[in-house]
Each structure stands twice: as C-alpha cells, then as structure tokens.
C-alpha cells in the first residue's frame, strides 16, 4: 500500500451510520442515530439502563434488524446484504464480545476449540495450525498455555472474558462490538482486562464500539463518546471533552453521579 492509499484509507470512515431507528411496537428502541467510525478509532456509547445503547449495538452488529436508516461498512451497504454475507462478515471482519462470557463461549468445548472455532468456520482444516494459533492467542490474553484443553467452565469469570476476547480476535477482525465487557467482574480484574484491551486495540489497530454504563471504562479506552438517553443521542464528542465539560443536562447528571472515592 502506498502512502497516498493508506492516507485515503484512514480518511474514509470504516462504519458510516445514518438515521438508524429501531422501534419495539409503539416504543422507541433507538431513534435517528448517525455517526461515523474511522479505522483504529474507539467509540464509547454510554447511558443509563433502557437508553437504547444495547439496541443500537445489536442493530449495528446485525443481531436485530433496524427499521429505518443506513449502515455502510467499508463502503458496503450492511442492511442490504444477504444474510449469508452478513454472517460471513460477522465471522471474519467483525467480532462481538458479550457482557456475559457464557453467551459468547461454547461452555462444553475446550478453550482451544473455542478459539479455533472461528478459524474452522472460515475454512481452516489443518489441526496443527489451528492449535498453534489458539495457543498463541491464549498467550496474548494471558491464559497459560497448559489450560488449552480445559473447558471454560473450569475458568474464573475474568479468564472466561479474556478467552471470549481471544476467540473473537483470532480471525483478526477490523471492527469489534463490545457490550459491557467489564460488567460482572470485580474491580481489580476489570483493571487488568481494561489494560489488556487497551494494549490489543493499540497493537492491532482495531476499531471498537464499546457500550458501557461505566464512565471509567470509556475514559480509559474510548477516543470519542456518544451519550444516549431515551433512545436518542443527546451529546457526542471527544471523550475528555464530554466528560470534563458536559453540555447536556443529562450528561452533567451522569458525570456528577459517579462516586468519588
């Protein structure tokens, strides 16, 4: 890739969302959400429970179908794709980290098999290579290599979450959706996980959309921030700018609600 090409590549948004709306009958899931996500950028979405952030994420990842709006990934119309194409994208270029690792892992399959599944899904048929890559990825998420044949049910919560991350990143996706990846973990484990995530995002140049209600998480990880309330985006901007100088009344409430210790 020449310098010119790489420069134009970085100036093109990886994900372009316009007027995305999802309704549950008469109720609003999310309303008229628009944003651009550039390569290697981390976008945080914060808001209280029921503000539509999870709905937005599942619409973006294709788990739910949006009613109105357009999603363009790398110039391709996501909503107009066939399901085969969209699911292939979901196994290769995209990754989805669930809040509860049990939703994202196969609990009856060994750690190595969990990491290898995406490789096999895209056609890897060499056992030695699959196992080698699985071992490499377990190392990257700080899971000892001799645990490769253990089932996730024998892992602690933090290890399960790291395993889920390894399983998602093994096919080298470009865009990762994360739904409260640190929820349900105690603070010290959270801190290690965030450290790990920050390292991986930086080293691999991942674009990430991370949904959370934990402002500390977005402060550490996110470059830009979107604040949602009642299905609408009420404020967006650079993370530090939004958190240090909140303009909207709800954002001010959110920022001031964080306990200081």
């Amino acid at each position: 890739m020449t310098l010119m090409q790489s420069m134009t590549a970085t100036t093109q948004p990886l994900l372009k969302v316009e007027g995305l709306t999802k309704r549950y009958g008469p109720r609003i899931g999310c309303l008229d959400v628009s944003f651009d996500l550039y390569p290697s950028e981390v976008l945080g979405i914060v808001g209280e429970s029921g503000s539509g952030k999870s709905t937005l994420l599942s619409c973006l990842a294709g788990h739910q179908r949006a009613d109105v709006g357009r999603i363009a990934y790398d110039g391709r119309d996501v909503l107009g794709m066939s399901e085969t194409e969209r699911r292939r994208l979901g196994r290769t270029d995209w990754a989805y980290v669930h809040q509860n690792p049990r939703d994202g892992l196969r609990m009856g399959v060994s750690a190595g098999g969990n990491v290898g599944e995406r490789l096999m899904a895209v056609g890897a048929r060499h056992y030695g290579e699959i196992r080698g890559k699985a071992a490499d990825w377990l190392g990257r998420v700080e899971i000892a290599e001799d645990r490769i044949d253990d089932r996730p049910s024998a892992f602690s919560g933090g290890m399960q979450q790291r395993l889920q991350i390894a399983r998602n990143l093994v096919t080298q996706p470009r865009l990762v959706f994360m739904d409260e990846p640190t929820g349900g973990l105690d603070v010290s484990v959270q801190a290690r996980l965030l450290d790990l995530l920050r390292g991986l995002v930086r080293d691999l140049g991942l674009s990430v959309i991370i949904v959370t209600h934990d402002l500390a998480v977005v402060r550490l990880l996110a470059h830009r921030l979107m604040v949602m309330k009642s299905g609408r985006v009420v404020e967006q901007g650079l993370t530090d700018q939004v958190l240090d100088d909140p303009q909207h009344a709800y954002t001010q409430l959110l920022v001031s609600s964080v306990l200081q210790v």
């Binding site: 399959v109 098999g113 599944e117």
Partner: peptide, 11 residues
Amino acid sequence: EYGLMHVKLYE
C-alpha cells in the same frame, strides 16, 4: 455454516 462440525473433530 459447518465450522462447528470441525470443532467436534478438533475436540
């Protein structure tokens, strides 16, 4: 989507 079948053989 038959990747899962190979997961069984992998196991």
